[in-house]
Design a protein around this nucleic acid. Sequence first.
DNA 1: ATAGAATTTGACCATGCGGTCAGAATCGCC
DNA 2: GGCGATTCTGACCGCATGGTCAAATTCTAT
Lengths: 206, 206
Amino acid sequence: MRSESPDKAPTFTESARRSQIIGCAIATLSEVGYSGASLAEIARRAQVSKGVVLYYFDSKDDLLQQVVIDVYTRAGEAIETRLAAASTAGAKVTGYLEANLQFVGTHTADVRAVVEIVTNARRPDGGLKFSPEGEDPVLAHFEQLLRDGQASNEFGSFDAHNLAVMIRGAVDTASGRLIADPSFDLESYTRELMTVVELAVHRRSP
Amino acid sequence: MRSESPDKAPTFTESARRSQIIGCAIATLSEVGYSGASLAEIARRAQVSKGVVLYYFDSKDDLLQQVVIDVYTRAGEAIETRLAAASTAGAKVTGYLEANLQFVGTHTADVRAVVEIVTNARRPDGGLKFSPEGEDPVLAHFEQLLRDGQASNEFGSFDAHNLAVMIRGAVDTASGRLIADPSFDLESYTRELMTVVELAVHRRSP
DNA sequence: ATAGAATTTGACCATGCGGTCAGAATCGCC
DNA sequence: GGCGATTCTGACCGCATGGTCAAATTCTAT
């Protein structure tokens, strides 16, 4: 069973199946969306019966949560690595955004899958299951980078919260664009965004 | 029936029911999301049987399409009015964005409902039903406003397509924020966005 | 009053969903 | 080779969905 707390050692089959199924769930979600990603469809793509999926995951909800954790972890590592190499606030903001967009480019389906889950999975009461209320940790993290730059006087004056919301909106729209429009050029988009961000954070007159 | 082409004159009951049901569909979509907005749930909120909904609309798909048309029409009118009063390219861009964000603020549920439909409704093959491929007319329209400003030399040099994608991303994120975070201040967000847009379009050095 | 159209209901249908489970197959190990 | 644990299947369950329909009700106009 999945929920044994002292999970001694996962079998070879177990870890292989789990990552295979997570991979198929990601592909399914990104290709046919949240409502099209049924257990049966995910199992079909993995060439496995529905029962197998529920043998390795407690429920569909559990599977989707594992997908979110899996992608978030990998994205977080990529960004954290990049952030560690930056010293100034400007370099951190630049690195954060570049690493973020680069991950979107190299893992488009993964990002798309998480977006599908996060924006659609709901609690019985109708509220979104992830980001339960008010504060979004991802947003708060980026907002803090902006505030740091203001505190060190490296940046100018601006409303850090609003600017953070705005820039994150510009970043989050990229995964959708990449899927909807094959001719979308992520590299030039990244350059354009970086330029605008530079202008925005360095302005001196409020 | 609904599909009679020469629809002589809609009954009082008919137009009243249609707009009532569209209103309930909007409320349902914005509160419980796409997957929670079943025909039964929409009918329940309208205090009417499922059959009534399908008596006035050919199918659920038809109802959702009418919702999109209804909201798009109203939003388009509000924006068009504002745009007509602007002469310079700068005023047009400013007016377009302000009118857009204002509509989001005064019709949050409507915008939310359309976002739910547009991002989730899919064709049998899995592709999104709305915005079928590549070009998004809303995006193209705004992009043209930017190009006009460049052509008249009123704006500086920038990649119009990428900047349009970016700004629309920043605008589209607002409806989500308004619902997720009650303390989100749309007015100050609008001001911040306008300031950044000014900086972005007027820059002279590429 | 009454005929005919418009409106509404509620029972019904096929389908697909997430999830369960008994049993069969397969594996790892002594 | 055989035994216990792991893995897997496929039939099955209850339920919700979008949609149909005959019949009942309510309007409208003569």
